[in-house]
Structures are given as C-alpha cells and as structure tokens.
Design a protein around this nucleic acid. Structure first.
Length: 410
RNA sequence: GCGAUCGUAGCUCAGUUGGUUAGAGCGCCGGUUUGUGGUACCGGAGGUCGCGGGUUCAAACCCCGUCGAUCGCCCCA
C-alpha cells in the first residue's frame, strides 16, 4: 500500500481561519451596513461569464485580459472565464436583464475574483472584493455619493487615518486622447533614458509611465505634460463639481495628477484610497467613471461610476479581531447528566444566548477546557441534573432562556 | 514572466567547524494531588529534516536540480 498523499492547496488560494476570518467578516458586515445607508441595492452575480464579456470591456491589451484570466472551455465548447473583476459582469447584466428600467441604479455586491498572478502580500489568485456601482447617472453628484460611501466605509472600519483618497480626472474621451498622444511625444523624445519597462509601456499604456517607481523614469515624469492642459471646458467643470461636492460632504482628498487606471474603460474621475502600511500593495479601494463601457458590450451609451475594494487588504489593515463572546458553557460532570445538558443547551440557544458544551475527558480536564473557552458563565450539570451557575456579571439573559416565562399575550 | 530570501513535530522555533538514537516551548492524549474558573507535577503519541540527485567514512547542515512559501518587480483591489 503506497501512502496517500494529501493534496496541497492551489497556489494563491487561502484558507482563512480564526481572528483573520473574523476581520474578513467584519469588513463584509460593515460594508453591508453602510451600503444600505446609501440605498445601494444588493445584487448577486455569477462567478463566471463568457470570456468575451471581459475581453471586450477591459481591453484586449491589458494585462488582466492578455495573461491573467482563468479561462476554460466548458463541455459545450464555449469559452468561459472566472471573473477577474465585477464591473464587466454587472454591465452585462444591466444590458441583458433589462436593468435600464431601474436607472439610475445603485448596486453593491461582494465575493471572490480570480486572476492568474504571482501571489504576494495582499495579492492572491482567488481574492475577494467589495463592489459598488452607480449605473445610468452621468452627473458629478453620482461620483460624490459613491466616494462619500467609500469614505464612510473606511471610517467605520476604523481606517480613517492611514488611508488617503487620491483623486484625478482623465477627462472625457477627447481630452484623454489628446493627453495620451502628448505623453507619447514627450516620452518618445527621451526614450533611450527610460527604464526597459517604460519603453514597453510607451507602446502599450503610456499613461502608466507616470506612476513608475523607477528613478530613471521619475526624472522625466516631472516634466511630462499633465492632463489639466488638455481638459475640455466640460471636463474641467465636471471635475470641479466632483471636488466641491466632496468638500461639502466632508470627504478629504488630495489631487494626484499621475493617478491613472489600468483598464481601458475609465473616463473622467479616477480615484484610489491608498495606504503605506501594506508594502507594495498600497491601493485598498479604487475605481472611477467608465462612461464608455456599455458601448463596448453593444449597449447604448450609459454613464456609470464604480469602485472595488480588496477585502483581504482591508482586513489586514483592520487587524485581527477577537472571537465573538461566549456567554455560557454547559459543563457536564457525569455522563448521566448529558440529556439534561442537551435540553439546557437547546434552551439557551433558542433564547438567543451564545452557548457551548463541554462533555468529555476527566472532570478536571472538563473544567480546564471550559475555562479555556473563556465563557462569561459556566452552568454546572452533574448526574442529578443542573445545579448551579458561576461567573461574573448579570445572569438575566441566561436565566430567562432556561426558565422561559409564558408570554403575557399567550 | 523576472529577482531575492526561506523550507526541521499540528504551531512557533533550536540544532555548534558536517560526527552517536534530531530537541524545546505551546498544543493534543492520558495520569497524580478525594470532582467545581486558567495553577503544579508525571507520562504518552507525533518528524520520509519539502522532494530528487551529488560530494563525503559520515549530510538537517556542503553542491546541483525541483516543488512550495514569503517578499519585491510587472500589474492590480
């Protein structure tokens, strides 16, 4: 008999447990609470889509599409892809499910996403995001509301300081194009002095040279043309309305003219909430306006804004969270008390008391183990039945649960 | 895809210039002190030293390869 080898977990996946899992849950619960305050409607989305949904909307040349997608053929020979982001799928649903009738539509969701990347701190192949989108709203007010929600979420997670909102505008389609060609002209002139990566970016995504970390590039970034010189009057007004709206709402922000977004569909407002506490992965929440996306999926022009936030990254900033309190432990000293203990335990839980049971090992070990669970109270049961409770603080809830009083209206 | 560092018990880690049978703490299981809030003491289980090759009388330790993890580049939340 050869030994059976235990399968290893897949690279870049995580098994989350204990205090970390509690932090993860805290992030999601806080998001759910805040999103309701802003009346974002909960949606559930498929984890996979037809490959074209992502290929067409994100841009064929982006890294995500060209080398990071988990794509496969199903048994019918159709090319499907595990979602690498939320926005494209939501845009597809907006078009195929008739959600236009609800426009302007505020939606929120969260769940796993998949990208074939080299794992490192705060980056995984299966990772999780919170997501919020406003579809069918072209006014700057939508941007303001969306950002205000992000800001409140981070504050309620206790991350008010240490995370800052960086804001930029990419202008409308024409502004962005004019800026882009000016950048290409500027960097082409000094091509030989740029890093190898940036020489390549010059072809694929010149905007990205702006936030290169290479000192050779930084020298020329300082003198590069900035978007403001190319903004149309409309684009300038739009951005002005967003910033003054944020100021009025008490959302702090800083302008970062080098901030660009990787995916093709972004226009106008672009933003990131960043921190310096997560090593290389400083962006904790990012997004922007994507007025061109619907058309790339064959729909009518539809303005929209959205953001996504990495749950793992937020959870790391939040830090480990303790297990929820344990209110009561039922300790059974003798096997003959087991039936009574089970009745007691059921009553406690039905009465809304967080309870657990310890019923094996020597009596000494049982007490040791019960104490180690850190309960507020211990209910003692021996062979003759329940005979006592110990612990500090009020026992009202426990007593009410195990001695249910008849309802006055019954 | 590229680079750096690291792989010893379930976990965190020792292990000397290569030298007997690879250790500790925690955890787990059992026991002792006449059975009631974390004590103390005793005992036990648990290791292909990531895997494969090489050097050597001798390898956890040196060399090569490989797999994995971590961190960084790229990219991104």
């Amino acid at each position: 008999m050869s030994k059976i080898e235990t399968p290893r977990p897949v690279r870049g996946t995580q098994d989350i447990f204990g205090a970390e899992a509690e932090a993860f849950a805290f992030v999601v619960e806080t998001f759910e609470r805040v999103r309701k305050l802003y009346r974002f409607r909960r949606i559930e989305m498929p984890v996979f889509e037809k490959t074209e949904v992502f290929a067409r909307s994100l841009g064929e040349t982006t890294d995500v599409v060209s080398k990071e997608m988990y794509s496969f053929e199903d048994r019918g020979g159709e090319s499907l892809t595990l979602r690498p982001e939320f926005t494209a799928g939501i845009a597809r649903a907006f078009l195929t499910d008739g959600w236009q009738q609800h426009a302007p539509l505020k939606v929120a969701t969260h769940g796993p996403l998949f990208r074939y990347e080299r794992p490192q701190k705060g980056r995984y192949r299966q990772f999780h995001q919170l997501d919020a989108e406003i579809i069918g709203a072209g006014e700057p007010q939508a941007d303001v509301e969306l950002l205000a929600m992000a800001d409140q979420l981070l504050k309620e997670l206790g991350l008010a300081d240490g995370v800052t909102l960086q804001l930029n505008t990419l202008g409308d389609g024409d502004s962005r194009e004019a800026w882009r060609s000016a950048l290409v002209e500027h960097f082409s002139a000094v091509r030989g002095e740029l890093s190898e990566d940036s020489q390549e970016r010059l072809e694929k995504n010149p905007l990205r040279i702006l936030d290169s970390k290479d000192p050779r590039d930084k020298a020329h970034v300082g003198t590069a043309p900035m978007i403001d010189q190319f903004l149309s009057a409309e684009a300038r007004d739009f951005f002005g309305a967003v910033t003054s709206g944020l100021d009025a709402a008490g959302v702090a922000w800083t302008r970062n003219q080098a901030l660009v977004r990787g995916l093709d569909y972004y226009r106008h407002t672009a933003f990131e909430f960043v921190t310096d506490r997560l090593g290389a992965q400083g962006t904790v929440l990012g997004g922007g306006r994507y007025d061109g996306l619907m058309e790339s999926l064959g729909g009518a022009p539809t303005p929209a804004v959205g953001w996504a936030a990495g749950i793992e990254r937020l959870a790391m900033l939040v830090g480990d969270r303790p297990n929820p309190v344990l209110e009561a432990v039922v300790l059974v000293e003798h096997e003959d008390g087991l039936a009574v203990a089970n009745t007691l335990l059921a009553d406690l839980r039905r009465g809304g008391v967080i309870a657990d049971i310890v019923a094996s090992g020597s009596v000494k070990k049982r007490y040791d183990r019960a104490v180690k669970l850190g309960p507020q109270h211990i209910l003692r049961v021996n062979e003759t039945g329940y005979y006592g409770i110990s612990g500090e603080g009020s026992t009202d809830r426990i007593v009410a649960a195990i001695n249910p009083l008849p309802s006055p209206r019954a």
